[in-house]
Design a protein around this nucleic acid. Structure first.
Length: 903
RNA sequence: GGGCGCGUAGCUCAGCGGGAGAGCACCCGGCUUACACCCGGGCGGUCGGCGGUUCGAACCCGUCCGCGCCCACCA
């Protein structure tokens, strides 16, 4: 009936699970065995269904933080589940070259020796970055192994490797040739610290304290006051603007004023953009340093005067401010204006949104600059349509609104960066200004031509990741087998950053085929009080430290158990400790099973020969298999984990394993059957849990079954068996009875035994008595499982609990007085609850409208509850009467408050 | 300024139209032959406030209060 013997003798098993002892070795074994490798041919031949995920590539400079840990855990759960379900699984790993971040790391190293990248020149510097990458980059890959990510390492990619660079160049040229990439002088976000352009998403806005300064500009016989937070930029003013309908200024439109400190004559123009309600209703126009002003200037044909250097110093104004830093100049210009008596209004403190570089935190400067852009209009529209028409499903669906908000309002994307580390823009210029875009298979133009100095935004190559990693632009088997990918798992925080861009590029490059079938969004990981983690707050957790202490399984299970779709989760060390305990629980349950000779039977257990407990747990197992499978299909990781946790701990360990002890002890057929059921349930349970906690389950399952690995073991399916409600009812009765016995023992201070086949002997009942025992007896009688043999004064109440494996007898000494007070208190409380229930159900059943309109099963439920409450009230009241009546007269609690009604 | 979401036990969160739940914390009792990383028992909630719909509302609608997030060219 049983198969292979356990790999390790059960008796040698320690009593505690030690993750450190197994995790690293198991991962090694998995990798060597090649379980994580994908095979295109099995998909192309129709043998298997594909399931593919491309790992959002972490930065080459990065370490595994708790956000990655969540991301990766959820992906690994899906991937392992599908692999066990018989799909051909590809989980493709890799890293991002992370332009600014990586270049900064190396520049910082050079700075130690007082050098800059310019001391080495472009080629040598880039070589140094590669050297750094080979020596120190990619620490996160080892950390992914610790976590247990079952990625196909043979396919690891890097956004800057040859293949991906070719893909970048290919798509750049395609976009360029179709006019979807262009070069223009525009106001862009400029980081004076990094000295490069930034895209909108690389700018973080924060509400900073500023000062609104009102300055008087004089014209011929009139003056006009403007308000500004950036008084230093007035040096580059080329106009004053007012609203066309503003009667206060209508007569001034067309006249000129003299720009203070500079002396330039500038016109007053009328423009709709001006808000007459704000400030004085007049605004200074500085086209080179403000995007709005740039627009105004375009409408009125005004010049743009750039007064800032790349590192944000004043330049070219011919004033004493030239050479000053922008913030220094802000003070100096204001002083100079004040000295001329031009600062007219109070200096109003003003909080406004200021952009900061997401990398260096420098205040971003809107700057007029010649850059490359992607014309996102048609691409974004396609990206929106793919979700609108269901080619890509966003989960949970509420999040789609944010996606549309983004793709429907996207600005053209600034893709050039003034860096050296990255994909160099494949455009060449001839001496007479001609431009030529060079494809990957073309030779660069000859003598005299020079290549654009800039590199592409890192996100440009990341956006191609779902197909560039599969060999595009070649039509590879990998693409044919695994594109579109099955699902993208990511935090909602980068829905716009990355998802929208991958959608745009995927649809564009792959002729309308979307990069993912589903985008599954999870929330952010927060600290135990639900606060955002931040270095300054000191509440950032290191998942690797927790993995070291509690094991990767514990960290994974904690994260999965908190991962409700799209919702943030709090995490604390206590949670992880609890998850570790769960792993130990599994370990010990398996240990128990092995110690008792449990094994997986060759043929399914026949319920016909089973006890009620056996049939119940097998039915529950069936239900849990179905639940877990459907929850995973719906990305309900938290609920799936929670369901397994409760099944494993509360049902299997706390009840079935306890109930199994008697038949195991009894030996014979009962024991054989119980061993088979234990084996059957554990086998399936470990399989179901494997995606969540791969290490402990693998370690236990191989010992239990002697099997090779869970990684590729088949996912449990339905037995197709009809559940047995009689068995469930019988076990429910046993649970109620046992619980009542335990409660009695606790109340009466009777030494407790852990085992469910409870035994109360006369000698054990210290203050026990017949009436206390009656509580147990009544419960048993109510369940129809009691026969009392009264043998006189020291009567013995024998409770034969007819578990299918035998009868348990509870002996109760009726000769000793019980603790009447405690007993009565409980009875009163129970009676009160029963009466409340009675009144409630009676009210419902008296309600004609309810009876007429409520569904049948609801009414039946109420009737049952009413009947139960009726008998409870009678029984409890009778017993209470035996004990000397009610303490409070009618059993109502004393609810008097203070006279004034306060608590 | 626009959009989304959240307020349920001390904490973190499920439940989203028919008997208020879990984990942790807390209290009491137990080294019971798988497990003290354990076992048993218990305490604990006007489900943010107020209206409405309904036979019935934590759940649907309205409104108010309090939080959070995202987007936006808020001089």
């Amino acid at each position: 009936m049983t198969n292979t013997a356990p790999a390790t003798p059960a008796s040698t098993l320690p009593t505690q699970y030690d993750p450190a002892a197994v995790e690293v070795a198991l991962y090694q074994r998995w990798m060597q065995a090649g379980y994580f490798r994908a095979d295109e041919q099995r998909v192309l031949s129709g043998e298997r269904t594909p399931f593919s995920i491309v790992l959002p590539p972490p930065n080459v400079t990065g370490n595994l933080h708790v956000g990655h840990a969540l991301d990766h855990t959820l992906m690994d759960i899906l991937v392992r589940w599908h692999r066990m379900s018989g799909d051909e699984v590809l989980w493709l790993p890799g890293m991002d070259h992370a332009g600014i971040a990586t270049q900064t790391v190396v520049e910082r190293q050079l700075a130690v020796d007082g050098k800059t990248r310019h001391d080495f020149g472009r080629d040598l510097f880039v070589q140094k970055v590669w050297d750094w990458k080979h020596e120190s980059g990619g620490a996160i890959l080892g950390q992914m192994r610790r976590l247990g990510d079952s990625v196909d390492w043979d396919r690891e990619r890097f956004t800057l490797d040859d293949g991906l660079s070719g893909a970048v160049q290919t798509i750049f040229k395609k976009l360029y040739d179709q006019g979807l990439i262009y070069r223009a002088k525009r106001i862009i976000n400029w980081c004076p610290g990094c000295q490069t352009a930034l895209s909108d998403i690389e700018v973080d806005h924060s509400d900073d304290a500023g000062e609104l300064v009102s300055v008087r500009y004089d014209g011929d016989g009139f003056s006009i006051v403007v308000a500004t937070t950036r008084v230093e930029t007035m040096l580059g003013d080329t106009a004053i603007a007012v609203h066309p309908d503003d009667q206060r200024y209508a007569h001034l439109v067309g006249k000129t004023v003299t720009l203070p400190l500079v002396g330039r004559e500038i016109p007053i123009v009328a423009d709709d953009h001006v808000d007459p309600e704000f400030g004085t209703g007049a605004v200074k126009v500085t086209p080179a340093h403000d995007p709005n002003d740039f627009e105004i200037a375009a409408r009125h044909d005004l010049p743009a005067i750039d007064v800032l250097t790349p590192d944000a110093r004043i330049t070219g104004t011919g004033t004493i401010f030239d050479g000053m830093d922008r913030f220094e100049a802000r003070v100096a210009v204001k002083s100079a204006l004040a000295a001329e008596g031009r600062v007219v209004a109070e200096q109003i403190p003003y909080v406004h949104s200021v952009g900061h570089c997401s990398r260096s935190d420098d205040v971003v400067e809107p700057r007029l600059s010649l850059q490359w852009f992607v014309k996102v209009g048609p691409l974004a529209e396609a990206a929106g349509d793919a979700v609108r028409d269901g080619r890509t499903r966003i989960h949970p669906p509420e999040m789609a609104a944010r996606y549309f908000d983004w793709v429907d309002n996207m600005h053209d994307w600034t893709i050039s960066r003034q860096l050296w580390w990255g994909h160099r823009i494949p455009v060449w210029y001839s001496p007479d200004g001609e431009m030529r875009c060079v494809g990957p298979d073309e030779q660069p133009p000859g003598e005299g031509w020079t290549q654009d100095e800039d590199v592409l935004d890192t996100w440009f190559s990341s956006a191609l990741w779902p197909f560039s990693t599969m060999g595009w632009p070649q039509q590879t088997d990998t693409l044919r087998a695994f594109y579109p990918t099955s699902v993208l798992v990511t935090g909602y925080d980068i829905l716009f950053f990355w998802v929208a861009r991958m959608m745009m590029m995927g649809l564009y490059a792959m002729d309308g085929v979307q990069p993912f079938h589903v985008v599954a969004l999870h929330g952010l990981v927060r600290d135990e009080r639900g606060r955002k983690m931040s270095k300054s707050r000191g509440n950032v957790v290191d998942p690797l430290a927790w993995i070291d202490t509690y094991g990767a399984d514990a960290v994974r299970f904690t994260l999965a158990r908190g991962a409700n779709p799209g919702a943030d989760q709090a995490i604390a060390e206590d949670w992880v400790r609890g998850a570790k305990s769960f792993c130990s629980k599994l370990f010990n349950a398996t240990r128990f099973a092995l110690l008792n000779g449990a094994a997986v039977p060759d043929a399914p257990v026949d319920p016909a020969g089973c006890s009620a407990a056996d049939r119940w747990i097998l039915d529950r197992l069936d239900a849990v298999v179905a639940e877990t499978t459907s929850l995973l299909a719906d990305f309900q990781f938290a609920k799936a984990a929670e369901g397994l946790y409760h099944f494993a701990w509360d049902e299997f360990c706390d009840w079935y394993v306890e109930l199994a002890k008697a038949p195991l002890q009894a030996g014979g057929q009962d024991a054989d059957r119980t061993r088979a059921v234990l084996g059957t349930v554990l086998d399936a349970l470990l399989k179901l849990l494997h995606p969540f906690v791969p290490f402990v389950t693998e370690s236990l399952w191989t010992q239990l079954t002697g099997g090779e690995t869970l990684v590729t073991a088949p996912w449990p399916g339905s037995t197709g068996r009809q559940p047995d409600p009689a068995a469930a009812a019988e076990v429910a009765d046993i649970m109620r009875l046992v619980t009542e016995i335990r409660r009695f023992r606790a109340d009466q201070g009777v030494a407790a035994g852990r085992r469910v086949p409870a035994r109360i002997d006369a000698a054990q009942v210290a203050p026990g008595s017949a009436r206390a025992a009656q509580s147990v007896v009544d419960q048993a009688r109510a369940l129809g499982r009691l026969s009392v043999a009264d043998d006189g004064f020291a009567a013995t109440a024998a409770l034969p609990v007819p578990l299918s494996f035998g009868t348990v007898t509870v002996h109760i000494d009726t000769s000793v007085a019980i603790d009447v007070t405690a007993e009565r208190a409980r009875l009163e409380r129970d009676l009160l609850a029963a009466r409340k229930e009675l009144a409630q159900t009676a009210g419902k059943l008296d309600n004609a409208a309810f009876l007429a309109k409520a569904p049948e099963k609801v009414v039946t439920g109420i009737r049952e509850r009413h009947a139960a409450a009726t008998s409870d009230v009678q029984r409890l009241a009778a017993r209470l009467a035996e004990l000397g009546g009610l303490a409070g007269g009618d059993g109502a609690p004393d609810r008097r408050g203070t006279p004034d009604g306060s608590a």
